[in-house]
Structure formats: C-alpha cells, structure tokens
C-alpha cells in the first residue's frame, strides 16, 4: 500500500483482460473506501468569523464546492465529517467548539482555515483569543491566509482529500479495538482565564511559581 497515491479508483498496474475491461474494475478495499470518503466529506455548518464568509463564498455558484461533494453543510455535528474551523477561536467560544467536536462521529477531520484558526492570527495577542485550535483539537490541514480566498480553501480541501487517500482501513484509529473514543477532548473550563483541564497540574505549578511580585 506504499504507492497509495490517488490515481483513480482502478488499480492501474493490474492487467484486466481486454474483453472485460469495460465491465470489470479491480481495486483494493482501501481505495474503494477512501474514494467513497474523499468525495463525500460533509462539513459542519459552522462559522466563526470573517473566514466563514469566504467559506460561504466557496459554497456559492462561482466556486461551488459541490463539485467535491462538500456542499452538504450539516448544522448538526452528528452528521458531519469535517469541522472547518473558519475564524478566530475565542476563549469564550472554545467550550462550544470542543463540545461540537466531541459530538462528531468518527472518522472526523479538522481543518484550520485562516491564520486565526491556525495560530491566533492577527489577534493572537488578545486576552480572549485562543492561539490556534491545534492546542485542543488534532488539526489535519492548515490553510494560511487572512482570509484564504475560496480558491485557496478549495486547494486546502484537495490537500485533505489527499490525506484521506493515504489512510488505510487497517490502521485508522476509529476501527482500532478498544479505542472508540480515542479523540475525545475534555471540556475546558472558563475560570479567571481558560482552564485546560488536561494541564491542571502544570497550571497549578506555574501559578505557584510566580512568586509574590
């Protein structure tokens, strides 16, 4: 499966007898599985900020993401395959985003669209801004730009499709035994500042080490 680069559904290096070439095609399960998934990535209908407008623009007539099977924007996370984090992630919003992510069924992908979602972007220094959604969610594709133009977004989506192509049904986390919730992210808490509960001890130590001054 090493050369598993996408080359259409058929396995090209297998000789199919000429007379049945147009009725038979040979593929691997991986390929069929990935082919099905890559053309039906349903995004969560979920916009955060300015980037969301370009995401909407990418859905409209001129760019038409339907050509990639990505036009079915699902308002509920239960039916979505991909979370397109389109915009600035604020501390106040973060718990809702994590909750949405946890509700998405596997396989699920996260795409960080724009500078803000990738690292906080121009607002990184702000007191209410999370410096990148990758602090909490596993991001699959980063799309730089502020905002990425719809074409750049589609280019990013093609990157995501390529990533899907490389996955193998034998190794993906959602079929591994005993690891159903491998991607569950504990909910952060809004306290005096954002509390990432996975880092409680670290925070406690750092807060104690700050000394009187």
């Amino acid at each position: 499966m090493e050369e598993n680069k996408y080359e259409g559904l058929n396995l090209p290096n297998y000789n199919i007898p000429e007379d049945i070439q147009n009725v038979v095609s040979i593929t691997t399960i991986d390929r069929l599985y990935n082919w099905g998934r890559r053309w039906s990535v349903w995004p969560l209908m979920f916009g955060l900020a300015c980037c969301a407008i370009e995401m909407i623009a990418a859905q409209t007539a001129r760019y038409d993401m339907a050509r990639f099977g990505m036009e079915v924007m699902r308002p509920t996370p239960r039916q979505a395959d991909m979370m397109l984090v389109s915009g600035t992630v604020t501390k106040k919003m973060l718990p809702s985003i994590i909750r949405l992510y946890n509700q998405m069924p596997e396989p699920k992908y996260v795409v960080a669209m724009g500078a803000c979602a990738s690292s906080g972007g121009p607002f990184k220094e702000g007191y209410n801004v999370v410096a990148g959604i990758d602090k909490f969610l596993p991001v699959d594709v980063y799309i730089p730009g502020c905002p990425p133009t719809p074409q750049a977004l589609i280019a990013g989506m093609i990157k995501l499709q390529e990533k899907i192509d490389k996955q193998s049904i034998k190794k993906v986390r959602w079929y591994e035994k005993g690891k159903v919730d491998s991607n569950y992210v504990p909910m952060p808490i809004l306290g005096p500042d954002l509390i990432d509960v996975r880092r409680n001890t670290e925070i406690k130590q750092a807060a104690a080490a700050k000394e009187g001054a």
């Binding site: 702000g126 306290g191 750092a206 807060a207």
Partner: peptide, 23 residues
C-alpha cells in the same frame, strides 16, 4: 513562539497560587 515567553506556555494568566482543581 509567544507561548515560550509565558509561564503557562499559552495565552493565559492566572492569579497567584491559583488551583484549577478546586475552582
């Protein structure tokens, strides 16, 4: 990265001796 300059290694700021567990 800006994270490296912050004691909490993120865009965070907590009062002194803050204990997240009992919050």
């Amino acid at each position: 990265f800006a994270e490296m300059k912050n004691p909490f290694r993120d865009n965070l700021k907590f009062p002194e001796n803050f204990d997240p567990e009992s919050y």
